[in-house]
Simulated assay, not measured.
Amino acid sequence: MGMTTPVRCHRGGTMQERPLGWARNPLTEFDQLLSEMSGLIESTVGGAAPAVAWTPLADVTESDDAFYIEIDLPGVKNKDIDVEVNGQELVVTGEIKEKERKGGLRRGARRTGAFEYRLRLPGEVDTEKINGQMSDGVLTITVPKAEVAKPRHVEISEKSESTESSG
């Protein structure tokens, strides 16, 4: 049993030879790394590459005969939006133009640049009749369901001969 010596026995300071970085809080280092990375990405990209398109916020609701996709696009002009259906995928792309500002921007939190929103459509929709409407900074895309998918109301007729009375 003399072969395995517990680490505690080495009092020669071998435990202190860990990399110093760990002495600090690893989380703050992680944060630092992240902010450095995002800074790096912003500086290399220059903010105008479609590769880093952001995704706008959207709600998808459903009625009996259609799906409605409401996408928040404040300040975006109709001509700057492109909606296309690619097979079962709805793709909304476009760009929010940077405003010309007088004076320096103290704090920028609003998204500008290219955006992209993708949604996988359910099978039974009528892609021919999809339309979009912009109002008050919200783009509403109406995706009608195909006739197949619409719920049908089945009439239940009463049988006239009620001979049996189960009572």
Rank of each mutant, 00 (worst) to 15 (best):
G104I: 10
R120D: 09
E128C: 01
I96Y: 01
G87N: 09
K102N: 13
K129D: 10
R107G: 10
A109Q: 12
I130G: 05
K99A: 04
N131G: 12
L119K: 05
I130Y: 05
L119R: 10
E95P: 00
G123H: 04
Y117R: 09
K97L: 11
V91T: 10
N131V: 12
E89S: 09
V125K: 04
G103N: 12
E116L: 11
T112G: 06
D126C: 06
K129P: 02
E89F: 06
E89W: 07
Y117E: 00
R101L: 11
N131T: 15
G87F: 05
R120F: 03
I130V: 15
G94L: 03
K99E: 09
R120H: 03
L105V: 15
R120G: 05
K97R: 12
G87T: 05
R107I: 12
T112K: 09
T112V: 13
F115A: 00
V91P: 00
I96Q: 13
E100A: 13
T93S: 15
G108L: 14
R110Y: 07
F115V: 00
T112R: 10
E116M: 02
G113R: 02
T127Y: 07
G113C: 06
G108N: 14
F115E: 00
K97Y: 03
G94C: 08
E100H: 06
E89H: 06
R120Y: 01
T93N: 12
F115C: 00
A109K: 13
N131E: 13
K99S: 02
A114C: 02
R110M: 10
V85H: 01
E124I: 01
E124D: 12
V125D: 06
K129C: 03
G108I: 13
R111T: 09
P122M: 05
V125A: 05
L105G: 05
V125G: 03
E98N: 10
G104C: 02
T93H: 07
G108W: 09
G103V: 14
L119Q: 10
R118V: 07
L105M: 14
P122I: 07
G132K: 13
V91D: 02
L119T: 01
I130S: 04
E124Q: 10
V125T: 11
L121Q: 03
E128W: 07
E100R: 09
V92M: 02
E89Y: 05
E98W: 00
